[in-house]
Design a binder for these strands. Structure first.
Length: 589
RNA sequence: GGCCUCGUAGCUCAGUUGGUUAGAGCGUCGGCCUGUCACGCCGAAGGUCACGGGUUCAAGUCCCGCCGAGGUCGCCA
């Protein structure tokens, strides 16, 4: 070892010892005849003192030190006098008086210093990720992530789960997200796909008798990025055999309880709250509602059915809905111009417009208030249990549009009006998603989750009559408005599986071609099984209060899926392409 | 692919209704300093105002395009 101690561990009891510490020069304070260095490593900072009496050569060399030089210092640990103690440092009661200094690696002047309070833009941070990762905040996040994954592995180990690795080079399937493809050298024209998730493999593990499986699995999806989406991300992947939905929920409830206890110091009550997909869409306009605050959506069909406002009546007459939210006390906080901004905001979600009322003692105040008689105004007020000073927003549109627009508006208002404590972590289940979604563009049914998701048994008769009514035995976990986990009971009955494929328009031949290895396995003694996957990056983000997952990934990619540190993706040699039998369409560049 | 925000010194930013030689803090370089801890003081260097075009007597500022970073809609079984 080049060191006897780290920069975070020396305390008063070490006084008198001669130690060697290594690390990065964090700050220096040079007095000519006396020089201080704060030496930093991931354990903390220790102040090194150089003066002529202890080591004249070391002092001379120390005066050449600059930020981020890597050095080794040998010296005596001494106690600081009372007036010199630095209460901001855990090591602030001692100094190391340097007798010897070795510069292990001189640093070029850094584009930014890890200790800076002016955090550079992300482009700079990603290009110099090795400097960014020295920042205390990122060091904290990296260490938190380690604790998190260790806790997860321990939890599942204690519950009898086996950690099994599944292939990264797998078979492409056209469903779902775009695949990242890997060309085969040995099979010209053929490609592997990187896994979007280990879904099929973990089901096969159930068939193979490994009835409790978990894996911290890297997944790849070639879709556009978001604050909470990276092209490669990590799932806590879980599957269990001989279980019902409730067993998965209980298992994950337990995990969340342990996580909150050990990582946040919070005791939470189990079972975690559960709501149905229908309730979530009705009350919050979203299948992943932020439940840290109320402001539930209300349906105003009854209140405005006979009003004089043509827009509302027309919408109701043509199968649409009139729904709204009430922001308590918000009327004085939103000017007409602010509300115009909100109107533009809901238009992004396809809403035609945004009606609003300022609630007064006597009724409602708004450019459109005149279309509502006093009784109707009172009825609207009563529906929201509104008080003077509240601000009511109403969207009249196609049912899906009212949900999307009001759901987004509710989230925005909740944030702007600070209706929740940003420290809160609210975890809940959303159950009974529809099994299928009608795809309007392509005029066909899509699987909401995936084609192996088991329907609720009493809904199976809807296959012939009204597939949109079929509920899935699914469960999503929502945390603060994010989808933090998603799973389902899987189909283990070939007859049901065939019905699903039929409805999705996947012929027996196609199914056989794409999923033969799973379907094959299901014919050789498949136990009832169910599983779930938790988004590890998102969980770490939420538990640490970050607002994007790049900060909890050591080497993330930009919105255009570039790694600015390495320069990936990059062009490759002509020889590599030849080996892979690939020709580039130069026109496409 | 659409919409929105941003891009000025190595970094973080300021820069007025378009108007003289584009500024500050930190960092860098030189000097002084024996108890600081974001040390202090004196001095200096450092700019393709992302890039390209346009309007104008005059553009960091206005317009168009484009590149990059971020947010978001679509997309993400």
């Amino acid at each position: 070892m080049l060191r006897t101690h780290t920069c975070g561990e020396l305390r008063k009891p070490a006084v008198g010892q001669t130690v060697t510490v290594c690390g990065w020069v964090d700050t220096r304070r040079d007095y000519g005849g006396l020089l201080f260095i704060d030496l930093r490593d991931r354990y903390g900072k220790t102040q090194i003192v150089f003066d002529a009496s202890e080591g004249a050569n070391a002092l001379a060399l120390a005066s050449t030190l600059r930020s981020e030089d890597v050095i080794s210092v040998t010296g005596r640990v001494v106690a600081r006098s009372d007036k010199d103690v630095n209460p901001k440092l855990s090591t602030g009661e001692i100094d190391v008086r340097a007798a010897d200094l070795t510069i292990l690696n001189k640093s070029k002047p850094v584009p930014f210093e890890p200790g800076t309070t002016n955090i550079p833009n992300e482009e700079m941070r990603l290009e110099y990720r090795f400097l960014d990762l020295r920042r205390p905040r990122l060091q904290e996040l990296v260490q938190f992530r380690h604790k998190f994954t260790k806790l997860v592995r321990d939890y599942f180990d204690e519950h009898g789960f086996l950690d099994v690795e599944t292939p990264m080079l797998g078979r492409s399937s056209p469903e779902g997200a775009r695949d990242y493809l890997v060309p085969s050298r040995v099979h010209p024209g053929s490609f592997y796909a990187l896994p979007q998730s280990p879904q099929i493999y973990k089901q096969i593990l159930m068939v193979a008798g490994y009835d409790r499986y978990m894996q911290i699995a890297r997944c790849f999806r070639d879709e556009d990025l978001r604050a909470d989406r990276q092209p490669e991300f990590t799932q806590i992947d879980v599957e269990m055999a001989f279980v019902r939905r409730e067993d998965i929920i209980r298992t994950i409830d337990g995990l969340v309880q342990v996580m909150m206890r050990q990582l946040k110091g919070k005791e939470i009550q189990l079972p975690l709250p559960q709501l149905t997909h229908r309730e979530a869409m009705e009350k919050y306009g979203s299948d992943k509602p932020d439940l840290r605050f109320g402001m539930e959506i209300q349906d105003l069909a009854g209140e405005v059915a006979n009003c004089g406002f043509g827009v509302f009546k027309n919408v109701l007459g043509s199968g649409g809905r009139v729904r709204g939210v009430c922001a308590a006390g918000a009327a004085p906080k939103y000017s007409r111009k602010d509300i115009d901004g909100l109107t533009e905001f809901v238009k992004e979600y396809k809403a035609q417009g945004l009606a609003f009322f300022r609630v007064t003692d006597t009724g409602l105040d708004s450019p459109i208030a005149k279309f509502f008689n006093p009784d109707e105004q009172q009825a609207i007020k009563a529906k929201f249990q509104a008080n003077a000073g509240d601000l009511i927003f109403i969207v009249a549109d196609k049912p899906k549009v009212t949900s999307a627009a009001l759901g987004a508006l509710r989230s925005r208002l909740g944030r702007e009006l600070q209706l929740f404590n940003p420290e809160d972590v609210h975890v809940a289940w959303v159950l009974d998603f529809p099994l299928f979604n009608w795809n309007e563009e392509e005029n066909r049914w899509d699987a909401e989750h995936h084609p192996f998701c088991d329907p609720v048994p009493e809904d199976v008769h809807f296959f012939e009559t009204d597939p949109g009514q079929i509920r899935a035995q699914s469960y999503d976990m929502v945390v603060n408005g994010y989808e933090a986990a998603s799973g389902s009971v899987r189909i283990h009955d070939p007859v049901v599986q065939q019905k699903v494929f039929d409805l999705l328009g996947i012929s027996a031949e196609q199914a056989e071609e794409r999923f033969s290895f799973l379907l094959q396995a299901l014919r050789y003694g498949a136990p009832p099984h169910a599983g779930i996957a938790l988004g590890l990056d998102r969980w770490v983000m939420l538990l640490t209060g970050c607002d994007n997952i790049r900060d909890v990934i050591a080497f993330p990619k930009t919105q255009r899926a570039m790694d600015l540190l390495s320069g990936a993706p990059s062009e490759v040699d002509a020889k590599q392409l030849r080996d892979l039998h690939i020709k580039i369409d130069e026109a496409a560049k």
